[in-house]
């Protein structure tokens, strides 16, 4: 190898390694932030998937229990949590989401070649992002229905994947003697920081409050997986067992539906999204949409995430999400 070729090769390798690390970090952030569009599912029939998705998660919990029993000894709860997290984490995606977007047992929208084609034309974020938006390079998550709430399959990634990090921050604070409420608050604020920067708004121009809700609930799933008064998994008389099966109904709320709980958009993106949202104004009178939103309103409550967002809005750090609701968009258009 001539002397001139070697430095060139070495320089090229260094530049590539640095680029790979930076893009890798960007990709790692973008991937869990897959976008979803619940408006597209409006008026389309979907079967309730609570039982099927519960069965999928419980299958993995049972396999985790079997694995722990093969080891044949007690383990710290944090190690058990990590083993569960590792079982379904696939690179930056989550195994439960990958399964739910493929399995013929899962009723979802869009589904099938014709509906997929239609979705591509009507997708809420279609044509709303720049070429450099890595979120745009990722596939959108379809909508499923759980306990009467329509949500993107990406929420499974948030609940059982991203939430692992929330829980780790929470545990870390607790292990330093931080009181429970403050540890929870620290984890949620740090999570919001990630969603505003690398995981959401800065990358795709969308801050999904529904994602934050799922992350928050997932933090408690991990906390109670093998600890507390009512754990899912226990080590009892030398044997691990699934004491309480996982149930999505304990976590899912109407706030997980992004057509109900509005996202916060950056100024550049909002006009394009708004234009696409306008198409759904007439659908607000559709019997399925009306019934669903009335049922949501009855179940609606002020969540911890909403309290934090309200605080940020009052402090002028985030725009008021109420301006991004479908009602607000349609009202403005009518005026």
């Amino acid at each position: 190898m001539p002397a001139s070729a070697r430095p060139r090769s070495a320089r090229f390798a260094v530049v590539l390694a640095v680029a790979a690390v930076f893009l890798g970090l960007g990709g790692a952030g973008a991937a869990p932030g897959l976008e979803t569009d619940q408006f597209f599912a409006w008026g389309r029939p979907l079967k309730d998937m609570t039982g099927v998705l519960n069965a999928r998660v419980n299958l993995e919990l049972e396999r985790l229990v079997a694995e722990l029993n093969r080891d044949g000894r007690d383990r710290p709860c944090q190690k058990v949590r990590f083993r569960f997290f590792k079982r379904h984490r696939m690179l930056f995606f989550d195994g439960f989401e990958t399964w739910s977007v493929n399995s013929p047992l899962v009723s979802r929208s869009p589904s099938g070649a014709d509906e997929m084609r239609e979705f591509k034309q009507h997708y809420l974020y279609g044509g709303t992002s720049s070429v450099f938006d890595t979120g745009r390079w990722m596939p959108p998550s379809p909508t499923v229905e759980v306990n009467g709430v329509r949500l993107g399959t990406d929420k499974l990634t948030h609940l059982l994947g991203t939430a692992w990090y929330y829980h780790r921050w929470y545990r870390k604070a607790r292990s330093r003697g931080v009181p429970l409420a403050e540890a929870e608050d620290r984890a949620v604020r740090r999570g919001l920081g990630h969603e505003i920067t690398i995981l959401g708004r800065a990358v795709s121009g969308v801050l999904s409050l529904a994602d934050l809700e799922a992350n928050y609930e997932g933090m408690w799933f991990y906390e109670h997986l093998c600890a507390g008064d009512d754990p899912n998994i226990v080590y009892d008389e030398g044997v691990w067992r699934l004491r309480r099966p996982f149930d999505l109904r304990d976590y899912v709320t109407p706030e997980w539906d992004e057509s109900y709980q509005p996202n916060i958009y950056i100024r550049r993106k909002w006009p394009k999204v708004r234009q696409r949202m306008l198409r759904y104004c007439r659908m607000l009178e559709h019997p399925q949409v009306r019934a669903m939103r009335e049922a949501y309103a009855e179940r609606d409550r002020v969540t911890e995430t909403e309290k934090l967002i309200e605080e940020m809005v009052v402090a002028g750090k985030l725009p008021d999400p109420s301006q991004f609701t479908i009602e607000s968009v349609c009202r403005e258009a009518a005026d």
Binding site: M1, R6, S9, A10, F12, A13, L16, A17, A19, A20, L23, G24, G26, G27, T134, W137, M138
Partner: peptide
Amino acid sequence: LPRITFNLGVLRRISSAHEGADRYVYTAGI
């Protein structure tokens, strides 16, 4: 990642060469 791929590697020469020729080559690509 979507729309981009990187690679790094190391190769060892297995064919004959003149004396003083390098045995190892570091590879990189995009």
